[in-house]
């Protein structure tokens, strides 16, 4: 009866950057964010059978990640004996416990309108990146988002510079088309 199937094999390729972005805007520490993403994947693996298929995989993973972020803040706060959580996650008591349900992005999650818009844009970009072939997405991310030098990427992926520019060109064309539909 589940509409959405679960397939952990390509979780990391598909969602790790998305989850990472979600985390980094909330904990603002690279290492912590990476750990939290890793924890999320492992926790998700363990509770895979609880996935009812009512939401998409991504929504489900985000809901687990949210818990992990909250736990993280609880942990660092407990030293002082004050378990006050200061991040703006959705904290009404009604939805306590039903984090496996499908949930739309909660409106209390963001503080200002521009952040909201930024998140939407980021979401659109991630969606479009997900549609690219893996190689194009990799190259595009390294070049455009991480801002690596052409040479570095060529060495790492073992391709020539002209090869790289062709991939970049295809990726940019696809991204522009995709964002035109979803954003501009």
């Amino acid at each position: 009866m589940s509409n959405n199937l679960i397939n952990p094999n390509n979780w990391i390729d598909l969602y790790s950057d998305y989850l990472y972005n979600y985390t980094i805007s909330r904990v603002s520490d690279k290492m912590v964010a990476q750990d939290l993403v890793q924890d999320t994947f492992l926790a998700a693996l363990k509770s895979m059978k609880n996935f009812k298929g009512e939401s998409s995989e991504r929504t489900w993973l985000i809901s687990i990640l949210k818990r992990k972020i909250i736990d993280y803040y609880r942990k660092i706060n407990s030293n002082k004996g004050k378990a006050e959580v200061r991040i703006g996650y959705n904290n009404d008591s009604e939805s306590e416990g039903d984090w496996l349900e499908e949930r739309v992005a909660d409106p209390y999650d963001k503080t200002a309108e521009d952040i909201l818009q930024n998140n939407e844009l980021g979401e659109a970009i991630h969606k479009c990146l997900g549609k690219l072939p893996k190689k194009q997405a990799d190259v595009f991310k390294m070049k455009t988002i991480q801002g690596l030098e052409t040479e570095v990427i060529c060495n790492e992926l073992n391709i020539t510079a002209s090869n790289l520019w062709v991939i970049i060109h295809r990726a940019r064309t696809a991204m522009a088309d995709c964002l035109k539909e979803n954003w501009f």
């Binding site: 950057d17 980021g122 940019r172 964002l179």
Partner: peptide
């Protein structure tokens, strides 16, 4: 436009 959008979004990627 694409470049601008990506700069604005401050999307980050993992190493």
């Amino acid at each position: 436009k694409l470049t601008q959008a990506i700069n604005e979004s401050e999307v980050k990627c993992m190493d």
